[in-house]
């Protein structure tokens, strides 16, 4: 930690140490609780009680769609990134009418893009459509 000299009587370290100790103590307690056999119950959501076995394939697809958005946003702009993440998540959740899904993803992304940039004055990367959108 970089601490500037003589700024205050109270070092910015002290509070951090309190939080740090708290984190360490609770971690140790949690580990001991897990070792004693209480390893936690998966949470239910609005869809009801969870399956017993995790479906890691679907999960990986959703994570991949999120990653794609993060990577593509700066490279190709919002419309492409949003289309990919919308379509990717929809695919993971079982959408298989590829063309229809893609059309909906594009329409959604374009509406959101113009709604935010024109309607709300929030900057979103135009990317490859920079010329078309006038940015």
């Amino acid at each position: 930690m970089l601490v500037p000299d003589g700024t205050s009587v109270i070092s910015p370290r002290s509070f951090s140490y309190v939080i740090g100790s708290f984190l360490v103590i609770t971690s140790v307690l949690l580990i001991s609780e897990i070792l004693r056999g209480n390893s936690g119950v998966p949470e239910g959501t609005e869809a009801g009680d969870p399956f017993q076995k995790a479906d890691f394939k679907t999960m990986a697809q959703v994570v991949a769609a999120i990653c794609a958005n993060v990577i593509l946003l700066d490279l190709l702009g919002f419309i492409v990134a949003a289309t990919v993440s919308f379509w990717g998540v929809a695919y993971a959740f079982g959408a298989r009418k590829y063309l229809k899904d893609l059309m909906i993803a594009i329409i959604f992304s374009v509406i959101v893009y113009f709604g935010f940039t024109q309607g709300l004055n929030i900057n979103l990367p135009a990317g490859i459509f920079a010329d078309l959108t006038g940015k």
Partner: peptide, 19 residues
């Protein structure tokens, strides 16, 4: 439909995180 609902939620959430 659930696929579109989650597609929309995820994309808007990413937008919210970025904007």
């Amino acid at each position: 439909p659930r696929p579109y609902l989650y597609g929309g939620i995820v994309t808007l959430a990413l937008l919210g995180a970025y904007a």
